[in-house]
């Protein structure tokens, strides 16, 4: 119960749409997990996977196994958001790193 509360709170904070959805199914959770996974692969190939992304993803998988699809979907979407942020960071750094070079 407490976990559900936390997950709802999390989803309200991060993505209000999720909270409204309310009717997460196995299919919707699996879809969110797959989509997070794709993004995480890109982040990893940029050598910029965040620990929080992996944590959220693991939580999503664990919830999915237990049949807590709402939590699974919220966590997976959180992982995807974090992966997106790290991908954007890596992209920007492809140029910006040069500013830090010691001259």
């Amino acid at each position: 119960m407490k976990r559900l509360g936390a997950a709802v709170l999390l989803s309200v904070m991060i993505c209000p749409v999720v909270a409204l959805a309310g009717s997460a199914t196995k299919a919707s959770a699996d879809h969110a997990i797959a989509s997070a996974q794709t993004k995480m692969k890109i982040a990893a190939s940029n050598q910029d996977q965040w620990i929080a992304t992996v944590d959220a993803f693991k939580a999503a998988k664990a919830a999915e196994q237990k049949g807590d699809f709402a939590i699974a979907e919220a966590e997976a979407k959180h992982a995807a958001t974090l992966a997106d942020l790290s991908i954007a960071q890596a992209k920007a750094q492809k140029k910006l790193w040069q500013n830090e070079i010691v001259h």
Partner: peptide, 9 residues
Amino acid sequence: EYFYTRRGQ
């Protein structure tokens, strides 16, 4: 490049 690239949260 790795050394000078910002990464992580």
